[in-house]
């Protein structure tokens, strides 16, 4: 019996977005990292193109992150005090992109200044040749102030700047326009909100191939399935030809997984949760692998061991 395999004929294609600029392109990165370009659902190689694998970014912070789980601090060791060294360590741990997370304050309560943000960006750029993602502290005024400065400091590097949200995107987009960077657009797990923000940002004149969307992810056990389904819907809409959904997707899995008790703490939790470190790494790994299956193009992770597992998973899915 010959079974006729159903093949979907999608009309749409995910836009290719290149992060980082080499010397030739006006930056200093050793190479650019491209995502997108798919013409079918994740890893269905038999019916379409999957030109690039999902990319792993590792999150580092400008300040020693006081609220991180001891497991993470232990895993990275001393480098967490030195963003440049941390970036190098992240590269060695298998990162293809570095996320530099800026803080609101340093040493407790003095605000991080424009000069601080520029200096740390420069240090990280000097320390690694990987393309850089920079997120502001997540507070509107500080984001706008610091990211504009960072954009200027790294002019031409094609950084991915974040996080643009509907309530605050104009300044970040303007900075990206001025200095040839990209932005990430976050919306709250909703297809239409995602589309709307993409429209608003591209209306400002930023080409779609400089926008990555972040449909908002949640950790395993904490509503991950919502993000999972919204990502599937976005990707299906993109393949059906809906232009404003055809952007690559980014998920902050490390942040999400490590703020949950399962990963964060080792005491005062049910015995059935098992061994702490194993559980914590599994939590980040499974959050990552599942969202990769639903279409994530960039996964921002935290623990080197979870990164190693995600790498195995991605390589196998790409047929390596």
């Amino acid at each position: 019996m010959t079974v006729e395999i159903p093949v979907e004929k999608w009309s749409g294609k995910v836009i290719e977005v290149a992060l980082g600029a080499t010397a030739e392109e006006g930056g200093t990165r050793t190479h650019a990292v491209t995502v997108g370009g798919q013409t079918t659902l994740p890893f269905l190689h038999f019916e379409g193109a999957i030109p690039y694998p999902p990319r792993i970014a590792i999150e580092i912070s400008d300040q020693r992150p006081g609220d991180w789980s001891p497991l993470l601090l232990e895993a990275w060791g001393d480098v967490v005090k030195d963003p440049a060294a941390w970036a190098k360590a992240a590269e060695e741990a298998g990162a293809e992109l570095i996320l530099l997370q800026l803080s609101l304050t340093k040493d407790g309560d003095t605000p991080v200044t424009v000069a601080d943000a520029q200096a740390v960006t420069r240090q990280v750029l000097d320390a690694t040749g990987l393309p850089l993602i920079v997120f502001g502290p997540g507070q509107v005024d500080a984001d706008n102030e610091l990211l504009v400065a960072v954009a200027e400091e790294a002019s031409g590097e094609r950084l991915l700047l974040g996080i643009c949200e509907e309530k605050n995107y104009r300044t970040i987009v303007a900075a990206a326009l001025a200095h040839n960077h990209l932005v990430t657009a976050r919306t709250a797990m909703d297809v239409n909100l995602a589309k709307q923000l993409n429209i608003l940002i591209s209306d400002m004149g930023l080409p779609l191939n400089r926008i990555v969307m972040d449909p908002t992810s949640a950790a395993l056990g904490y509503g991950m399935e919502y993000g999972y389904s919204v990502m599937e819907r976005l990707r299906i809409a993109a393949l059906q030809g809906d232009k404003m959904t055809q952007l690559p997707m980014l998920v902050t899995v490390g942040y999400e997984a490590w703020r949950q008790k399962e990963s964060k703490v080792g005491v005062g939790v049910p015995e059935a949760w098992g061994e702490w470190e194993e559980r914590a790494i599994l939590w980040e790994t499974l959050t990552t692998t599942t969202l990769i299956e639903s279409g994530a193009d960039i996964v921002i992770m935290r623990h080197p061991e979870a990164v190693r597992r995600a790498r195995v998973f991605i390589d196998r899915l790409m047929g390596k």
Binding site: G223, M224, E225
Partner: peptide, 20 residues
Amino acid sequence: FTPASAYALLALRANIYTNP
């Protein structure tokens, strides 16, 4: 099998099979 892996997989299964 370990408790940690069972917990993670069971939670994932519960999530994916939640009626949206």
